[in-house]
Nucleic acid binder design. Structure first.
Lengths: 137, 137
DNA sequence: ATTTGCACTTGCAAAACGCAAGCGAATTTA
DNA sequence: TAAATTCGCTTGCGTTTTGCAAGTGCAAAT
């Protein structure tokens, strides 16, 4: 598994890393849930297959979007965290949410978060970024 | 080819439509180039295969992101255009560009556009949106 | 000492991808 | 007006990726 760059276009380069149906769902879980272990990702609503999850985690780690950490409670568990490169995907994730808000029917829970985003997008990003940076070693 | 929704998550729903390596490159061409015909998409730097292009165009049209129009010059040609739903992907595209700007080496041409974006993101989106809406029938 | 939990890996069938060639209609060229 | 070219796809087919189920090895709990 290696990185094949199709062109030097920024959109293309980005898609080469996370342009599939699953990668951004992993990033989503790391951003908006407390889900951080392999097993937690598997519990997400979209039911990712274990082998796909493993290959995406490897891809995202190889490209510096996420990192593995020791779990404080147990050697058997692994904690996945966003790197700064991963945290910087937050504005993209927010815009995707806002787009979906306009064209799909969202759950009340999501609409609540988006209401806060719409109030002051810049502030939300700043706060959330700091929160995500907190537990980075 | 039908729409399979994996969950009601906005990120997931969005990825169900354009979560692949090619769809956003088509949207990119419609946004940032004057490329609008089938043949023009094929000329893009990433060298999309003809059958993949056809299936993505069909998918995007079915999901209301793009539309076909008659070409003013010839019946043999087809003009592809972004719908409002497609135009509304602009903020996402911009954020992807900004993310890539931070983590990849971009061409001078792209950096130039991004300099304008960084000056006033809101203004850029507003202007570009109006420009894209202009030639919509 | 045995069972359970966790993070993967493996095997295999099905689907998607990628390349090249082909095809029908519209347009241009000779 | 006939032949060649352009255009927007479609088709065949080999390769790659996906998705499902089962299995493996280590750690931790019982």
């Amino acid at each position: 598994m290696d990185i094949k760059m199709r062109s030097d276009c920024p959109i293309s380069c980005s898609l080469d890393i996370w342009g599939d149906k699953w990668s951004l769902l992993i990033v989503r879980d790391l951003m908006f849930s407390k889900q951080c272990t392999y097993g937690d990702f598997l519990k997400s609503g979209e039911k990712i297959a274990t082998n796909i999850l493993a290959s995406r985690l490897q891809m995202l780690e190889m490209n510096g979007v996420i990192t593995k950490q020791d779990h404080p409670e147990s050697k058997a568990k692994v904690l996945y965290k966003l790197t700064q490169k991963g945290i910087d995907l937050l504005p993209i994730m927010i815009e995707i949410n806002l787009w979906a808000d306009k064209y799909f029917t969202l759950s009340a829970e999501r609409k609540e978060m988006l209401a806060e985003v719409k109030k002051d997008k810049g502030a939300f990003i700043k706060e959330k970024t700091i929160e995500l940076q907190k537990h980075t070693n």
